[in-house]
Amino acid sequence: MAMRSIVARWSWALLGVLLVLGLVIGSGVRLGGRPPTTAQRISQLDHLIGCPSCADLSVAESNASTAVAIRQFVAKEVRAGKSDTAIEKAVESSYGAGVILRPPATGLGFLVWVLPGALVAAAAVVLVGVFGRRRRRGRSGGPVVSDEDRELVEAVLRR
C-alpha cells in the first residue's frame, strides 16, 4: 500500500515536471542566456509582423510587395542597432497596432494573456480540493457522504 502511494506521488511529480518543461519549451523562452543573433532577431520580428495586404500571414511567410518592403525595413533597422520595440513601433506607426501578431497586454487583449493561466490555476485548485477530500474520506474508512447527503440527514433530523 505504502509502495503504491510513493509511486503515485512520484508519477504526479513527474507529470508536473513534464508539464512545466513542455510549457517552457513551447513558449520559446531562451534558457541559455546567450543573446539572439542578428539573423535570429530578424526572423523573430518577421514572424511577429503580419503582412498588411494578405490574410493571416506574417511578412516572413508572404512575398507580397508590402511584406517584402517590411522585411527589408526590419533587416535594415536591426542591422542599424534599433531595438525590437522601436522597430515594432515604427511598423505600427504606418500600419496600425493590428499588424503586430501578438495580442496587446492592455484592454481586451489582456484577457488572452491572463485567462489561460487563471483557468489552469482554477483547475488545479479544484483538482487538489477533490483529491484531498477523497483522500481524507479514504483515510477515515467510513462511507462517502456528500454535502447533499448531510443536508438531507439534517433536514430529516430537524423534523
Partner: peptide
C-alpha cells in the same frame, strides 16, 4: 524598394 508605400502604410 516599397519604402514610400511602407511609410504611408499602403496595403495595395
Amino acid at each position: 524598394e516599397g519604402d514610400y508605400a511602407f511609410r504611408y502604410g499602403v496595403r495595395s
